[in-house]
Each structure stands twice: as C-alpha cells, then as structure tokens.
Write a protein that binds this DNA or RNA. Structure first.
Lengths: 186, 186
DNA sequence: TTGCTCATGTAACAGGTTACATGATTAA
DNA sequence: TTAATCATGTAACCTGTTACATGAGCAA
C-alpha cells in the first residue's frame, strides 16, 4: 500500500500529470517500485477524493487536456506521517528461486542456462546503475538542483548495486556447484 | 503466476491437503514465496478443474473431511514444462527503499531508527537461516530421505543468506553515512 | 478457561496487469 | 509510412489479503 505515498513524494517535488509520473517512475524508482498507467490514474483520482491532491486542468488544442496534480497541505501532512512510520516488510516473491528449489527435477543443463541468464541480467543492471544512473545523480548533486536529495537517491541506488552484485556472485557459485562439464559452457 | 506451479511441485513430493500445503510453505518456501490459506484453497480448486490434480476425500468423525490432492500425469507434464521455461523477472517492491529515497524529507534520527530496525530484522533472519534451517536441510540430506533434493534446497537457502548479509552490510553503511551523533546510539 | 491445532471454506475488498479506445504531432 | 511521444482514460481480469463462519480435541 505504498503507491499513493510514493505519488505524494513525487508530486511534492513539483506538480505533475499522471503521464509525467509514469515517466518519473521509469527514470528513478522503477528498480524498487513500479506502477502501470491505469493504476496511476486510478490512484490519483482516489487521492484527490481524499483531499491529498488538487487538480488544475490545462486545455490544449488537438491534444487531450493535461490534468496537473498538486499536493495539498493535507497531502503533505499525510506524506510526513507515512515517512515516519516503520516500513512494511514486503515479501519477496521469486519464480527463479522456486525453480532452483525444485531443481532436482529439472534437466541440469537447462537449470544452468537459467542461472547464466540471471547472471547476465544482473550484470547488465549493474553496468547500467554504475554507468548511467550514478552519473545522473552526481550531476544533480553538482548542479545544486537537489544537492541534499541526491545523497538519499545515491543510498537507494547503492542498495540496487549491492543487490545486483550479490545475485551475480550467487549465480556464479550456484553454476559452479552444479558441476556442468566445460564442454557445455558457451 | 507461479503459485499453481509451486503447489504442483509440493504435491509432486507427495499428496497433501490445502492445510498441509500451507504448513509446507511456512517451513520451507516462505522466504521466497508465500500464500494465504484462502488463496491456496481457491488455486487447488482451479487446478483440479484443469485436470492437474485429482482429489480423494477422507471422511473423519467430528472433524471436517480431508481433501487430499494428488498430482495427475497432466499436472506432472505441466510442472516440467513450467520448470524448463525461463523464469519471469519479479519486480521488487520495497517500501523501505522508497522511504530512503525520500529520506531528505524525514527526521534523520527517525530514518536511522528505521535502518537499525531493518538491520536487526535481517540479522535475526540470518541467525535463523544458519542455526535452524541449514541443520534441517543437512539432516534430510544425511538421512537420505531426499539426498538429491537437499542440494537444491541448500542453493536457495544460500540466496537467502547472501541477501540478508547484504542488507545488514548496506544498513550499516547507510547508517554510517547519515553521520548521526554517537549520543543518540542506543 | 483460554488458546492452539486440525480442517474446511465464503465474501468482500485491495492492488496490479492487460486489452481496448482515441487522436494529433513529429522524427526516421 | 511507420513508429514514437504526448495524454487521457475504461473494462475486465487476475492475484493477494482480511474478515467471517464452523467446530472438535487437547494441553497449559
């Protein structure tokens, strides 16, 4: 149930449309939360009803009107309240780990392929985090657009980096423990 | 959408009731998947309709009848098919990381408390994994009840251990980077 | 006598995904 | 001319959670 509060946090930086919020998710938060457009539109509507947001409709010729949402005093209060409370622990659902758990019933080469695929995905993420996302955060920090906020963005990115590193290491260890003959290593 | 296949995997070890499956989740799989009882009952019903399971009702005096589900040939086929396909990537939703991301707007002592709470939870999990779950898996392996399966159970447990270790390390680094004065360290 | 274990479920709701619908502008 | 971007949504569906209902037996 963190989606409305995540939206509050984003709109608290500056007013935005649903469409812009979706873009913000994809640029920054997508690796520890995500939401689809219909979900965002639906949630924004509910938040407005609760008085957490206010809307301004900007008419445009030939395009659909922009519904720009702004945070209200009540919304800001609710956001602070939520920030202060201890976070819910989110259960970790991993189809990969289920397959590994039942791995004895799989073809071992197939399992090795799945693990190398996982290793590859996480290695690619790591590269992206280090080469694309880190520099953007540093850039924001240097431009003093959000010098204080960027410290916290870096902290959450650091989690993503450590996670991806850990997965790569685990995949390597798991593949080795399968002891697949070197002839199949392509 | 891995729940029905997880149930297939468990029932494939031996026939079981919904209630027993819930217990199996709590004993083994709960740290990378979980399900509530109503969800399990509903899913078992759907799986039976598809022909993946068959049911035998055992009447008992004074207690509700046991509905024991067994896997069918079709179910076993479906399970193998699913095991072989590449796993879906599961988005990682973490309220904790959202709070950290917006941490600039929080009281810094409050944030430090949240992080120490997280550290504590994961340190406790680590202890449980090493002192309770590892020995159970080794026991199974030694008793030769499931000598081959236990290798894979250990592999998925190893993921959990590495994950918890990583979180503990990240929390420590994050708390240190906040630079809260030592007077508040209780 | 309080609460846990065994054992079934239904109903209602909350949260998330997918498919569908519309339509102008602009870049390759 | 094909696809992407901007911009709104609705409807249907799937998945997961919570509250409610029932009821015996047993241990502290």
């Amino acid at each position: 149930m963190s989606l409305p509060h995540t939206l509050l946090g984003l709109i608290n930086y500056h007013p935005a449309t649903g469409y812009e919020i979706k873009a913000a998710f994809e640029q920054s938060i997508h690796f520890f939360w995500n939401a689809t457009l219909p979900q965002i539109y639906r949630t924004l509507g509910q938040m407005e009803e609760k008085g957490w947001l206010s809307v301004t409709v900007e008419h445009q010729d030939g395009k659909p009107s922009r519904k720009v949402y702004s945070i209200t005093g009540e919304g800001r209060e609710e956001f602070r309240r939520w920030l202060a409370e201890p976070p819910e622990i989110s259960p970790h659902r991993s189809p990969l780990l289920i397959k590994v758990f039942f791995g004895n019933q799989m073809d071992q080469n197939n399992l090795a392929e799945i693990l190398t695929g996982c290793r590859q995905q996480h290695a690619a993420m790591l590269k992206k985090y280090r080469e694309e996302i880190m520099p953007v955060i540093q850039h924001f920090s240097e431009l003093a657009k959000a010098p204080e906020d960027s410290r916290f963005w870096a902290l959450s990115l650091d989690f993503g980096i450590r996670y991806a590193e850990m997965v790569v290491e685990w995949c390597d260890a798991a593949i080795e423990s399968l002891g697949i003959s070197s002839s199949k290593k392509d």
